[in-house]
Design a protein around this nucleic acid. Structure first.
Lengths: 212, 212
DNA sequence: ACCTGAACACCGTTCAAGT
DNA sequence: ACCTGAACACCGTTCAAGT
């Protein structure tokens, strides 16, 4: 008789976990639910991953790997290179609204994340930035992007508010009402914020004499 | 005999919940634990709050109320006014590392949050900005601040990684190592990012002719 | 090597009951 | 009005056992 091959793998477990999160939210991901989705006893997962925290780490890495942009290979001056990378990051994060908060808080110190990050910093250095500036700028722009997507699509941690709150009357907030009258345009808003930050950093660099 | 006064109140429940989160983390906050901390049966809380989501909403509002800066009353040109407000926001968020992710994802549509926000937008309008620009700029800077604090002190959602991961060797990431050689200086980094974004927005406004 | 299933100490929420 | 306590359908994790 043929030797049986394993039905589970770290990869399949993690992708199924992300699928459950995307479909039903963070709270819906339990080890038992995950087992059911995989067609195995819930505890089978523990043979492949030590605990739920490790599962989350895998999910974070899986999402980052979707970004799949070799920033270091992009053409153009560094602000444009970073803009391409960051727009792509936003795009990927938007696809996983229920996972963004996890990604925002769990450190991703794995080769697949650090490698591209290191090469990106190297790329900025070739344009005259110090390693420190390169990382600061990247870090700040990533923080803006993650914070923006969190406000944009991030699922409320702890589940949606069900009970009606104290009613708010729009008449009390005339300026907010006017600002929102034209509707919410997240793409333009993100773009404006990204440009502001990159322009600001570019000018800081120029003022410091780091870019000729 | 004296009429008994209630031992619980919405206020006290919410502040105790925040205290538990601050002390032992988000996962430590259960309704039973909260009841124990309050010295009552766990289910007593349900008389004052409909469910755990409402409890989180209360926590978010409590943290925002700590900011307690009337942005509209601050002197100086708008970029400096916003900087004061945002530094204060970062300061408050840093005091509640385990709550930041909740604050970042739960909408806070309450009078105590919307009121100051509306007055702040009104203040920017007096300096020539449109309501729309004023809100965009505020929104972007807040996203940066929250994203930054999340990376800075945000507790990993799902608990800390316990099992050792695949070892990473610093030699593979020379640029990152160099960038971190001087240590991590979050205050300077935040300040640089904030200045970059505000300068960038100020220049966008000037270019659009909105500020004389 | 890989998966199962019972067991333990927990969860959030509902609901009838107490005072 | 305000709080209690049993009950229900869940959790994450450990561990011995199966194949």
């Amino acid at each position: 008789m043929a030797t049986r091959r394993p039905v589970l793998s770290r990869e399949r477990i993690i992708h199924t976990a992300l699928a459950v999160i995307d479909r039903d939210g963070l709270d819906a991901l339990s080890m038992r639910r995950l087992g059911a989705e995989l067609g195995v006893d819930a505890m089978a997962v523990y043979y492949h991953l030590p605990d739920k925290a490790a599962l989350f780490d895998g999910v974070v890495e899986a999402v980052y790997s979707e970004v799949d942009v070799d920033a270091a290979a992009l053409p153009g001056p560094w602000p444009e290179m970073l803009a391409v990378y960051l727009r792509r990051l936003r795009e990927v994060l938007r696809r996983h609204p229920h996972a963004v908060a996890v990604i925002a808080t769990r450190p991703a110190y794995t080769a697949s994340v650090l490698g591209p990050a290191d090469r990106a910093v190297g790329r900025l250095r070739e344009e005259g930035l110090t390693a420190r500036s390169a990382m600061e700028i990247t870090h700040a722009c990533r923080a803006f992007t993650i914070g923006f997507v969190l406000a944009e699509v991030g699922a409320p941690l702890g589940g949606p508010t069900r009970a009606p709150r104290e009613a708010i009357s729009p008449a009390d907030y005339p300026h907010l009402v006017e600002a929102m009258a034209e509707g919410y345009r997240p793409d333009e808003q993100y773009e404006a914020g990204l440009r502001a930050m990159l322009d600001g950093f570019a000018r800081q660099q120029a003022a410091a004499g780091h870019v000729p």
